[in-house]
């Protein structure tokens, strides 16, 4: 079981060859999986959009907009029915004020700004506490905390502690506050998107984008 001598040349050569072979193999695997990785991401996004909006036929082209108070842009996914009427818009929004940082949410809005659904996409909130936001604000049997069917323009989307209309998750006020902040951010940016001349002249969107 003789081993190669540890001369400087042998060592550098070996390390170089090993790294080169490894990198090449990886490049190959990367090419193989590239398409499937993109597909998996797209499927997850599609699933999220479908779960927050009522039934639709086609997705229009997505667009991005910077919210007034944020550094990162939100992504908008308009959805249309068979007759090209706007069914609603799914908005990928975020907040950085979560208990453990970033929370990413897909929120669905009807053309008049009523929330049709939401899905929490990404978060690091405490399991069993903040993580309850996945289901807490959708609970139709508890109108105090349910936000589906409400309009951030007409109800106060803040936790009751801050004078708003929404019941926070028990023992998770910070997460609840952050969650609502993300939803309100989506709503406000959605409103300003609608008020822009290129999209619609009428603040209450009458359907479709030209």
């Amino acid at each position: 079981m003789a081993q190669k001598e540890s001369t400087f040349l042998n060592m550098t050569l070996t390390l170089f060859v090993v790294t080169f072979v490894a990198a090449t193999v990886l490049g190959f695997v990367h090419d193989l999986t590239k398409a499937d990785i993109a597909l998996a991401k797209q499927k997850a996004q599609q699933k999220a959009i479908e779960s927050v909006l009522p039934a639709f036929d086609t997705l229009g082209e997505s667009y991005k907009m910077l919210p007034e108070d944020g550094a990162d842009s939100l992504e908008f996914f308009p959805a249309y029915d068979a007759s090209q009427q706007l069914v609603g818009v799914a908005v990928k929004t975020y907040t950085k004020s979560g208990f453990s940082g970033l929370i990413s949410i897909m929120a669905g809005f009807s053309p008049d700004g009523i929330i049709t659904g939401y899905e929490v996409l990404e978060h690091k909130e405490t399991p069993g506490l903040g993580s309850k936001m996945n289901a807490w604000f959708k609970d139709q049997s508890k109108p105090g905390q349910n936000i589906i069917g409400k309009n951030p323009g007409t109800s106060k989307f803040e936790v009751k502690k801050d004078g708003g209309d929404v019941d926070a998750i028990t023992a998770s006020t910070i997460t609840s506050r952050a969650f609502l902040e993300a939803v309100v951010r989506a709503y406000q940016t959605y409103q300003s998107a609608q008020e822009q001349p290129a999209i619609s002249n009428n603040p209450t969107n009458e359907g479709g984008q030209s």
Binding site: M1, A2, Q3, K4, E5, S6, T7, N10, M11, T14, L15, V18, T19, A22
Partner: peptide, 14 residues
């Protein structure tokens, strides 16, 4: 058998 002893740990790691 082809890896020089002194550089085996980095090679294994790669």
């Amino acid at each position: 058998n082809v890896i020089p002893s002194k550089v085996r740990i980095p090679s294994f790691i790669v």
